[in-house]
Amino acid sequence: MTATTVTATANTRPTQTARSGWLHLCNGLDPVRDGGMVPSILGMTGALQRAGGDVRIVTSTPSRLDAATIAGGVAIAGPETNVAEAVGSAEVVHMHGLWQTHTRRGGRFAREARVPYVMATHGMTDPWALRHKAWKKKLYLTLVESRNLRRASCLHALSRPEIGHLRGLAPWAPVCFVPNGVDLAAFDDLPPRSVIEAEHPELKGKFVLLFFGRLHAKKGINLLAEAMRTLCPAFPELHVLIAGKDDGEWPAFADRVADAGLTDRMTYVGHVGGERARQVWAAADAFTLPSYSEGFSMAILEALACSLPCMFTTACHFSEAAQADAALVVEPRADAVTQALRNLLERSPAERAKLGANGRRLVESDYTWDQQADRLASVYRWLSGGGPSPDCVVS
């Protein structure tokens, strides 16, 4: 569908522009800096392209795409792009995240050009997230983001609790519920575990519990350290593998582990991506994410796609996994995390394999990117063409 709208750049008067395509705006595509939002955006836009969309990504900072998988046909432009022109020529704009330049400018340009826009906050409206650096976010919310959210054509919730978080900030804006997805093929035929064991022989013969994510305060890495203190002496075969960029929490975590005399029971490999990430997934016997706050974790979906038995917290907002007997889901408290991991370790290999198989089946059934792209495409077509709202629009 193509329409005509009046658009304006920062330096020119409004002109008549043909409107077409689905534009995604984000801060950048740097997996080291931007974390799970990068595979989320790339997976989402790639599937939308496969679904027949004309998709373009514009970033306000430079990207790092050397280890990223870019779907054919998805155009990516950097900070040199004239954002006002890009927004004004789009059929629908989809903005990702909060608190940054691309939403401040993108929301204003979309309203000026009368282009419908969607905002996906990726968990940034979660109460824990809003309490983190609270005064800065409250000020920016008052000056900028509240207007963007309230005037959005549609808000994009990745989890059911996020629907309520968004409604609290923008009570009258429609909300579509479209979770993240995963490309299953990327997690089939993983390399042999011996590949990473050759580099890290301490993993040989161990039960490897994988934490995959940024080492940020919200990820609950401190809860994992407390669980290790209790569980490592009781389970001599347990070894914890940590994969992810240090975002401020590594020194404290390493100190806690060292104080407990458990440094040799843990391996840290830093940020991984591409084939290196597949090697890390292949090394794991189980996965944990004891977070205090999440949007909708890509790492959880990837762990389920790998058929790994999983333990994560209610703050990950994925109760569907517990309902499908695909994961152990507990409150983000040290005692609850420790007991759930003990439960996982005490299960037989067959019981853990059943848990992992249920996880893979859940992803196959409801959480592939192609399924989510169909839902998002229906939202875009509704916003640009009218008619009844699609089933995934919940308010």
Rank of each mutant, 00 (worst) to 15 (best):
V115M: 02
R33C: 03
E249G: 01
A340M: 10
A110R: 09
P171K: 07
N148G: 05
F235C: 09
Q371D: 00
H271Q: 15
L241S: 06
A84L: 11
G244E: 02
S293K: 03
A18Q: 15
W22I: 11
A277Q: 11
P309F: 14
S293V: 09
K204N: 04
S291L: 11
G73L: 09
A3Y: 15
N27F: 01
G386K: 13
A303I: 11
F187L: 05
P161W: 14
H24Q: 09
E91R: 15
K219A: 07
V329R: 02
C306P: 08
W22S: 08
A377L: 14
R352T: 08
W22L: 13
W281C: 06
H239W: 12
G248Q: 10
Y292G: 01
P116I: 08
R381F: 08
V330A: 04
W135P: 01
R352A: 09
R342P: 01
V38F: 02
E331G: 02
F212I: 09
A284T: 11
R381L: 14
S60K: 06
D259K: 14
G356I: 06
E331I: 00
L139G: 09
G21T: 08
H96D: 05
L224I: 03
P39W: 05
V83P: 01
G97P: 05
G78E: 04
K138I: 10
E202N: 08
G53T: 11
D259Y: 02
A170L: 03
S319A: 14
H200I: 13
G387T: 12
P251L: 10
T69G: 03
P388A: 14
A336Q: 10
L23R: 06
A225F: 05
F177I: 00
F211K: 06
E80Y: 00
G244I: 02
A86C: 10
R160E: 11
H96N: 13
D285Q: 07
I76W: 12
I242F: 13
D126H: 15
T142C: 09
P390K: 06
K206H: 08
A305P: 09
T101I: 04
V330K: 05
G213F: 02
A357R: 06
F109L: 12
A71P: 01
T103V: 15
V329W: 04
R111H: 05
M119S: 03
